[in-house]
Design a protein around this nucleic acid. Structure first.
Lengths: 233, 233
DNA sequence: CAGTAGATATTGGTTAACCAATTATTAAGT
DNA sequence: ACTTAATAATTGGTTAACCAATATCTACTG
């Protein structure tokens, strides 16, 4: 018999099997917040997978705040009751890779907020970093070079200036895929980029002047062009 | 000499050291999208950390879409240019744990959108699940039991019905911390929960009737109470 | 000289042994 | 009988050896 390497999809299925197993076990044993899960070795034996797989699954549930590992002690149910635990795990198991449209939708939502917050909260240092990103973008466009990266970095600078760490994180999560798709579908062509400079400058100015309303308005106009491209491609 | 175990913070610093090292290396060698990174073993030697630490750091950069590992072949720079790579890595290195206020801010933003989308896109199956969550919440409140979990599960059901996978994911990420803090600060006391039933029902009804405007309005009213509690505590 | 087949080295991934901290159990002492 | 000290077992975390797929080099053939 030939031993085949597991594909990424198969690995994901193994992980889902484990996560479902942990959920069932929590229910079976009526584990409550603070209770200890069986050891990784026991879990790997019961679920018939390697300890490494178990550790990966636990890490994922830790990421979602459902479990908490403590060295040389054990893995514990986080401060979340059994009802929420079940509901959330089911949601996690059902999660699918987001489509490009979802990403754009989310990005627009986030940015219309971060730009407002940035106008309210930006420090002088934030302003400097945004200016640098803005200049880098303009320079590339004027040289007729591709500037998708510089574009996104300007937007990330706004996210940082918003002072909201979780929005900043979420922007970072969706940005790479956005860049890849933009480049693939040539969303930002040269003509559009020319307009982009003016629009970026308008956004920057509004943030500099601490005018949240105007900042949001300018961002909306900026996205208007993107919208057209995204939903026509 | 006594060997001490590394705390979680120290481990995080090691990871940041590695990520910065990888960034410097990409710059030094002018690696472009598709180029291969040095092997994990070389990196671990050069940065003087274990291969496991290297793998963790690479995994993190893979999560943010900056690197891509291929078995038995190597780790490659994703389809993102050196400028964006530098900017994003710097952002990642600077990321801090979000404060509770940031989480609430983000949650409100997300939910005012997901509720609109849910009203537009909900399937009958979505409706059933939301109804189940709604009933579970009502039942608990009427029994004068704590219902923070059921509350959040209703909101997660809305996120699912929005049909936007990334917003759904983001809601899942912030939910546990929200639950923990709500319970800690007793944000949702019994009287508020009584009101909550009516508010949830109004939201549900609006989604059922596919009325996005009304759904958003009702969600806003629902959050009005929360807002007061969050910023007074 | 080009091209190909085979051997060798390198790669990310996996596994099992190991580690020190913790926890549970036992034994001893008062 | 209770407390405490010592020991054994268990725990998550870490490390190094191992694996098979891949990439690279070598030697041979036409």
């Amino acid at each position: 018999m030939k031993l085949e390497i597991l594909t990424k999809t198969e690995n994901l299925n193994v992980q889902k099997h484990i996560i479902a197993g942990i959920r069932d076990l929590i229910n079976l044993k009526n584990l409550e917040p603070g209770d200890k899960l069986p050891s990784e070795r026991m879990l790997s034996e019961k679920l018939e997978v390697s300890r490494g797989n178990i550790r990966d699954a636990i890490q994922k549930l830790e990421f979602y705040g459902l479990l908490k590992s403590i060295p040389q002690s054990g893995t514990f149910v986080a401060n979340i009751g059994v009802i929420a635990m079940n509901g959330m795990i089911d949601d996690i198991l059902r999660l699918e890779e987001p489509e490009f449209k979802s990403l754009v939708e989310t990005r627009i939502l986030l940015e219309l907020k971060t730009v407002r917050l940035a106008a309210l909260r930006r420090t002088d240092e934030d302003l400097d970093e945004m200016k640098a990103a803005l200049d880098a973008f303009s320079k590339k466009v004027l040289n007729k070079e591709d500037a998708v990266q510089e574009d996104l970095l300007f937007h990330l600078a706004i996210a940082k200036a918003s002072g909201n760490s979780s929005m900043n994180t979420f922007m970072l999560i969706i940005t790479p895929e956005i860049i890849t798709n933009f480049e693939k579908y040539h969303v930002c062509d040269k003509d559009l980029a020319q307009k982009g400079i003016k629009e970026h400058e308008a956004i920057f100015k509004a943030i500099k002047n601490k005018d949240p309303q105007l900042a949001k308005k300018k961002m909306k106009e900026h996205f208007k062009e993107l919208y057209k491209y995204c939903y026509n491609v």
